[in-house]
């Protein structure tokens, strides 16, 4: 097996989750690498939508470094603005959301607004929802990318920025008035999670070779559902690493970043 980093594994796993003939709503960084890798391998008819307003661009000038990067508009099929991108999403054209955040709970609710208890004077203030809250509400399926750490996988998030399954009740999302079906996968450097259909709680699906379900549970503050058939995460092959490092993220803006800031 070739040597790979946590970032390589996250991007590669993101690619595996995406199906062909779909539209994926991406931000910057690893989601774009995941989507481009999927396009170049198993999903040639998969397209990206960017919140600044472009649909199905061809990124032949290099990786966009910003969601508003002019390169993200390159050779798009359709190029309008934020209203258009999110209204296509609300209408049902965006199949996957790729979002990140500072904290996630067992029902897939994500915080990217603040830490602390007082909204008017938080202990830490993050940039805010950006597109994430709308993507989690209205893309059909939400894929979260997170570093697997106890302080991030928490009992309760400090602020629900991006809706998951809420309190886990069957009608939470319906009462919230959102259109998408909700949390689908959580991709980390050491495990992939899905959600239990009956309880909507986070469930361990795959673990990195060499680790046990117990190792993963120790990195999570809430109790995971651990089924008997947990699989091993597929490791990227030499040709996958070549594609991601030499073709997609040539400058190493995202793959060379460490998992932890």
């Amino acid at each position: 097996m070739p040597e790979y980093t946590d970032m390589d594994m996250i991007a590669y796993t993101g690619s595996r989750v995406l199906e062909d003939d779909k539209i994926v709503f991406v931000g910057t960084g690893l989601p774009i690498i995941a989507a481009m890798h999927a396009q170049l391998t198993h999903a040639p008819n998969l397209y990206m939508i960017y919140e600044a307003g472009s649909l199905a661009p061809i990124l032949d000038m290099g990786m966009p470094l910003s969601v508003g990067d002019t390169r993200a508009a390159r050779k798009a099929c359709f190029l309008k603005g934020l209203c258009s991108a999110f209204e296509l999403t609300q209408r049902g054209y965006a199949d996957y959301a790729f979002i990140g955040g500072a904290q996630i709970d067992m029902y897939g609710n994500i915080c990217s607004t603040m830490e602390g208890t007082d909204y008017d004077k938080p202990s830490i203030r993050f940039p805010g929802s950006g597109g994430a809250g709308a993507m989690a509400a209205n893309c059909e399926k939400t894929i979260a990318i997170m570093a697997l750490e106890k302080r991030r996988f928490v009992e309760k998030v400090d602020f629900v920025t991006s809706i998951g399954y809420g309190d886990g009740s069957p009608d939470y999302r319906r009462n919230a008035g959102v259109a998408g079906s909700g949390p689908y996968r959580v991709i980390t450097n050491r495990a992939v999670f899905g959600y239990d259909e009956a309880t909507r709680r986070m469930k361990l699906l795959e673990i990195k070779p060499g680790l046990s379900p117990k190792d993963i549970q120790e990195l999570v503050s809430f109790e995971l559902i651990i089924p008997p058939d947990v699989k091993e995460m597929v490791e990227p092959r030499e040709e996958d690493l070549h594609l991601m490092r030499e073709v997609i993220d040539k400058e190493g803006y995202f793959l060379k970043k460490k998992v932890q800031k």
């Binding site: 509400a137 629900v160 920025t161 991006s162 809420g166 919230a176 008035g177």
Partner: peptide
């Protein structure tokens, strides 16, 4: 609109 509901926003 179809977002914000169910979040702290």
């Amino acid at each position: 609109i179809r977002d914000h509901g169910g979040s702290d926003m």
